[in-house]
Computed example of a mutant assay.
Amino acid sequence: MRARILSIAGSDSGGGAGIQADIKTVTALGGFATTAITAVTAQNTLGVFGVLDIPPEFLRKQIRCVLDDIGTDAFKTGMLGQAQNIAVVAEEISRYRNMPFVLDPVMVAKGGASLLQKDALAILTARLIPLCTLLTPNIPEAETLLDRPISGEDDMIAAAQALREKGAPAVLLKGGHLPGNRLTDVLVTPDGIETFTAERIQTRHTHGTGCTLASATATLLAQGRSLRDAVMEARLYLRAAIAAAPELGAGAGPVDHGVMIAPDRNGPRVS
């Protein structure tokens, strides 16, 4: 049976991020995607032009309908929006503590629009982060979670360790927002610290990269990869997807989620 991944996130009408990116990524890596939508957005490559939150009890109904019938082998969360929805997600995921759970703490869209209500940050930190297997913030998200600046690799390592102290068992802190032609991601787990460095691909087409990386990691964890291997393979998949971006739209365009589709039922190995 294919690994099942339940993505709990917002919908992106432009198709590059959110639920749409998650479905494409999970499918490309050989998994089966199910969804619970937290919000509907009106957006394209130029920005977010409207957000409609899903009522908390309807979000709960989506989650339970999927889990009670189809089940899941991993969870991935993205845009959660309002505090009530975060509370619902925490309550529902806490019933499945043995499942891998990748938490992408989506706060701001690529164009700058806020995707997390101000009163939601505390409940995200207190109730949801301790439930996850892996927390995957970018630099601005980590700065918000910790209320302090991050300006280099040493700061990233310290920040990832501080986020573990807030309850996350493991943290992948993504360094793409820092300047320079080389970007570094930091993985901190109970086993130690590891950094991954690569040359930056010079492109404006990076919409949905955080969603894509998180859902790829969740898929690979659901397929039985170790955390380190899942992160490494997800990063390679994302890099290939960025390099093959279809160059759509006048702004920050989407990546090519289908770049490495393979017919292997257990999920393709990325090299």
Rank of each mutant, 00 (worst) to 15 (best):
L172V: 07
I193Q: 12
T203V: 13
L183F: 14
D256H: 14
P246Y: 07
L227T: 04
L248M: 13
H205R: 03
G208Y: 02
A230P: 02
A168S: 11
A168H: 02
L221I: 06
A168C: 10
G175I: 03
D264T: 14
V255S: 01
V231Y: 04
P190D: 15
D256P: 03
V255M: 08
I201H: 10
N266D: 15
E194Q: 14
M260H: 09
E153I: 14
V188R: 02
A241K: 04
E199W: 12
H205G: 06
T197L: 14
P190S: 14
R204S: 13
A222S: 05
T219L: 09
E233I: 01
T217V: 09
R228K: 13
R228G: 09
C211W: 00
A218F: 03
H177Q: 08
R164I: 09
A240D: 05
M232A: 14
D229H: 13
P246T: 08
V186E: 04
Q202P: 04
N266H: 15
R182C: 12
I157Y: 05
D256F: 12
G192R: 11
L183H: 13
R228T: 15
A243W: 06
I261D: 05
A245E: 07
L213V: 07
Q202T: 11
Q202G: 00
G167P: 05
I201F: 09
T203A: 12
I242F: 00
R204E: 13
P263T: 06
G249S: 08
A245R: 02
T184H: 11
D155R: 06
G253T: 01
V171P: 02
M232E: 15
L220P: 05
T206Y: 00
D154P: 05
E153D: 10
P246V: 05
R239L: 04
L238V: 11
G180M: 12
D229W: 08
R200V: 05
D256W: 03
A262V: 09
D229M: 13
V231G: 01
Q161Y: 13
E153G: 07
I242D: 06
I201V: 12
G267F: 03
L236M: 14
P254L: 10
S226H: 10
A230H: 04
V259D: 01
R182W: 12
L172N: 03
D155Y: 07
I261N: 08
L163N: 01
A234K: 03
T206C: 08
